[in-house]
Computed example of a mutant assay.
Amino acid sequence: MKLYEFQGKQLFKKCGIRTPEGIIIENNIAIPEKTHDITYPAMVKAQVLSGGRGKAGGVKRAMNPQEAAGFTEQLLGADLKECKIDAILIEECVPFIEEYYLSITLDSASRMPVVIFSKHGGVDIEEVAATDPDKIAKVIIDPLIGLQDFYYEVIFRKAGLTEPDLKGRIKEVIASLYALFNDYDCMLVEINPLMRVKDGSIIAADAKVDIDDSGVYRHPDLIAWREEMATSELIKQAKAVKFLYIDCEPDGTVGVISNGSGMIMSCVDWITKQGGKVACALDLGGGATADRVAEGIRILAQNPNVKAILISIFGGITRCDEIAGGIIKAVEKIPVPIVAKLDGTNKEVGMKLLVNANRTDITIGYTIKEAAEKVLKAQN
C-alpha cells in the first residue's frame, strides 16, 4: 500500500518528525476558503502515487492566495503521469540552508532494514549513487538489537557529517523514522529532501511511505485511508470478491490470471520475452472454485485493452478441474480467447474437460513458454 505525501506526513508528525504546515484540498469549492490560511510563498503539490511529479509540472510555487487557487484549480482533476489528481497539498515554503536524503527500506540480501543517508538530497538519489556512490551512507540494522549508538556513528562517518549539533538532530529523525518503519509494517520510508533550516531544526519536506499489504489490517488509520483512496472500478470489483487486480502496461493487450504473485510475474516475464505486453493481471489466491474462476475472467475481460487471457495455475488446494470448469463457464458469455496452462491437483481431469469442451476460444499451453506464444497469437 503506497501512501500519498500528505498521508505520509501525517504519520511523520505522529512519530515526532517536523513537516511544513499545509492543508489538503480535494474539491474546487474549498479553494478560495482554504488557500487564505497559508503563509506565502507556498508550494502547490499534486498528490499522485508516482515519482517525478515536479518535472512533470505537478509541483508549483505560489506567491499569493490567488496564484495558489489558480494552480490548484488547474491541477485538481487533471492527469499527471497517467494518474488522476484527486487532492492537492498546499504548504509553506521552507527557507532551508541544506538538503539531505534519508530513507529506510529492506535490504534484499541480508533481509534486514537498511538506513540510507546522504548529505546530497533534493536530487535524484539514483543519479548520486551512479556518479558518486561514496556520498551515500548505507548501514544495515540488526532488528534484534535495534538502532544502537554505534550505528549512528557509522552512518555519520560514512556520510561525512561532523557537526555535533546537526548529528544530534538528525539522529532524532532517524530514530523516529525507524520506529515508524517498524510500528507500521513499512517496506519503505523516504524523506527527500530532509531540510535543515536557519534555526538549525530539521524538517521533512517530502514523504514517501510504502506499507506491507499484509500488515495493513493492524492499523485502523491505514484501513480508513485505503477505503478512501480512489481506485479503478475493476480493482473495486476484484477486492469485493477477495481477488487482487493489478494494472500493468497501459498499452498492453494480454490479461494474466494465476494463483500467486510469483506465478503472475513469471507469466509477465514470458509474455514480455515473446514480444508482448501485459495490460493487467489478477491473482485468484488459493482454493478457487469454478464460479470464482469465471468471475475472475469476467472482471479481467472488462479491461478494454485485453485481447486475450493467459491462465496459468499450479494446483494445490486449487484444483485444476475447478479451474477448467470456470474457464468453460466464462467463455460462454465472454468473447475473449483464453490460453490455459494447468499443473498440479487434478491436472489430467482439468485438461480433459478443456479438450472435450471442443471450443476454438480455449487453447492449452503445455509449458509457460508455449502458453505465452499461443496467447499472443490468440489475440490476433
Rank of each mutant, 00 (worst) to 15 (best):
I29S: 12
E126C: 04
E228S: 07
K34E: 01
L75N: 05
V339R: 00
A159G: 00
S103C: 14
V209T: 10
G325Y: 04
C93S: 14
F314I: 06
K236I: 13
K352F: 04
L106E: 11
A179S: 14
G252Y: 11
L376K: 04
Q379F: 02
A279K: 10
E127Q: 05
V59E: 09
I145C: 13
L180K: 04
D132Y: 06
M265D: 06
I116K: 01
G315I: 06
K81W: 04
M351N: 05
D269Q: 06
N28W: 03
M1A: 12
V114L: 04
M229A: 03
E190F: 04
K167Y: 02
T318A: 12
C267Y: 05
V216M: 10
Q7P: 12
L144R: 02
E295Q: 14
V331T: 11
A288Q: 00
L282W: 05
T253Q: 12
P164S: 09
A230S: 09
G286N: 03
C280N: 15
L144G: 14
R53H: 10
I170F: 10
V123F: 07
K239G: 15
G286S: 02
V114P: 09
I88R: 12
D132K: 11
I140V: 15
G52D: 09
K135Q: 15
K138C: 09
G315M: 07
I116V: 15
I328R: 00
D86F: 12
S266V: 08
V336L: 07
F71Y: 15
T272N: 14
I317W: 03
Y4A: 02
F150P: 01
D183I: 01
Y100F: 15
G325E: 05
I104Q: 03
I271V: 14
R359T: 01
M43S: 06
P337T: 05
Q74N: 14
G54H: 07
K374W: 08
A288P: 00
K171I: 00
I97E: 14
I362C: 00
F243G: 01
A87P: 05
R298I: 00
A137S: 15
D199E: 11
G215R: 05
H219N: 12
I202E: 09
Y100S: 09
R292Q: 13
D86L: 03
V216Q: 10
R298E: 02
A207P: 11
D132Q: 10
S261F: 07
S110L: 08
K374D: 07
K119D: 04
I257Y: 00
I116W: 09
T39L: 12
E91L: 00
D212K: 02
A330Q: 09
T253S: 14
L180S: 06
P95R: 02
T345V: 09
V128G: 04
L166V: 10
A324F: 10
N346H: 12
S266M: 14
C267Q: 02
K236S: 15
Y40S: 03
